[in-house]
Amino acid sequence: MAPGDGVRRRDFIEIAAVSAAGIGGLATLVPLISQMAPSRDVLAGSTTEIDVSAIEPGMAIKAVFRKQPLFVRNLTPQEVAAADAVAVSSLRDPQTLEERTKEGKTNWLVTMGVCTHLGCVPLGAAEGENKGEFGGYFCPCHGSHYDTAGRIRKGPAPTNLLVPEYTFTTDTQIVVG
């Protein structure tokens, strides 16, 4: 630095040294924060294969996806018709059954079994459980009712049951995640 430009060498060294130490100190926060994120083994369990051949119309199963319940439901024609009969604009989270299922397979409803309110497991997947006022799922924790397309119809939950990313690898096999 040229003499007479008003910057003292000592000031420059002080600011540079403290800045370098400060940036280094902030950089040490990265591992301290990052260690709390899901570890490799947790992330490794993030894909699930499910054989759906044994699920009859009107039945549902509870599978496990990322340590959380996953509902796979084979809708009856009546349930499909009931879902299609609803005016989409009247819904809290407007979606059609077609948008929530795969093309040509609208009878297969694959959703997380995690209430979008506070994460309880809704009832309605197993035989004899309360399916709520709309014939889909009912969350016992705070009384959210979902319809046959897994859409929120009544209660505190803000959105429809989440449809995870999945594909049909064959007609009877899906891969989730």
Binding site: A37, P38, S39, V42, R66, K67, G119, C141
Partner: peptide, 27 residues
């Protein structure tokens, strides 16, 4: 634990990543 950490999921935008970070997993 699920319900209370689910409270953080209600925060717009950052809620869900925050919840996963707090739990160190999806549940």
């Amino acid at each position: 634990a699920k319900v209370i950490t689910g409270l953080f999921g209600a925060i717009p935008l950052v809620g869900e990543p925050l919840q996963i970070w707090l739990l160190g997993g999806f549940a």
